[in-house]
Design a protein around this nucleic acid. Sequence first.
DNA 1: CAAAATAGAATGAATGTTCATTCTTGTCAA
DNA 2: TTGACAAGAATGAACATTCATTCTATTTTG
Lengths: 198, 198
Amino acid sequence: MPYLRTCPPQPEPIDCRILTAALDLFVENGYHNVSIHEVQKRAGVSIGSIYNYFGGKEGIAQALYKHILKELDDLVDSVVAEYASPWQQCASLIRQLFGYTETHRNIIAFIFHAKHNEFLSEDPLATLSQPFIKMRSIIKKGIECGEFIALDPWVMSASVFGGAIRLIQLRLDGMLDQPLPYYEEMLLKTIETGIRKP
Amino acid sequence: MPYLRTCPPQPEPIDCRILTAALDLFVENGYHNVSIHEVQKRAGVSIGSIYNYFGGKEGIAQALYKHILKELDDLVDSVVAEYASPWQQCASLIRQLFGYTETHRNIIAFIFHAKHNEFLSEDPLATLSQPFIKMRSIIKKGIECGEFIALDPWVMSASVFGGAIRLIQLRLDGMLDQPLPYYEEMLLKTIETGIRKP
DNA sequence: CAAAATAGAATGAATGTTCATTCTTGTCAA
DNA sequence: TTGACAAGAATGAACATTCATTCTATTTTG
């Protein structure tokens, strides 16, 4: 079951096994290159069970997407609760995303390295989901409270998170020799220098 | 024919018509959601012609990919030839990519907003292609000549181009109200501040 | 005239889904 | 306590559809 911060129940119920198997296959091969019979085999369940729980292939992907976005949302909430300053919130969030890219690779990949609109008909733009909205809200607060320079919030958001997302994708593509925490303070330094109000 | 800086021949030969039709359909719907008969109809050619010229569906995508990467490569070369300083090269490249995102949307989308490894078996990582290698080479020169701070080249590359790529994707997803040139100087300002050696 | 290009119907493998059947669990009545 | 029954979960073979590709016939070109 694709949790970031929780332990999966044991024994794992059928629906969780389907989601875990599907996540691994979708990330490894791309949604469209995975047949539902492959998910079935990897999860060790019957074809009919998949339809019973999720209504079909897209239903699996939709459930995965919502579930992982909820996990991300909780992560953003915890960061906001733990730190007072918008910069610290951004920095901590990037550190945690980098850490999870190393430890929960497929979960991060499913949200940050996929074209959801190619296989989801409902709400396929991750950037319109709660966690991303909250991330932009942190940026706006940073501008309002004078910690960040006052530029367009989309620009500021791209400046803060664009480089981090890029490194995550490069790591997932196998381009980087080191785990992401190796690069993290360097990246945070350039971001901070670029967006902090002098 | 998906050129950035050239005018297409008239009358357009069959292979160019196939590539143009496929580009539009692949970008609009995602490679896997487009059937070869749809490409056929949009290009106004026969099914057999497609196999004659490109060997199959993947052959079309591969030809598009190579062709557009060559266009990008030429763009990078022209920028390097026109400007002496690495920062000016980066800034000009980002400006031009933003401009082309507005005027040649599908060409930019095919390279910067797609998961090539889901439909190409040959060289599917754009970041390993010539234009991207040259972009990183500009970064390395910036570090060597002392214009940029001396951090890991992958980090610097993500800091310079990560935010720009993110804004391109947001624009392609319809998130931004304004055309990209509206945001460009703001973004360049934060990037430059973050990576310039004091 | 022969070779290459073009057209489009036919092909069959692959895929997502359905559906009849079986299994499991809980409830109720004797 | 046990057996019958009902409901829902689980199964997997069969099905319908779609798709990329092949093949055959025709047209065009050198």
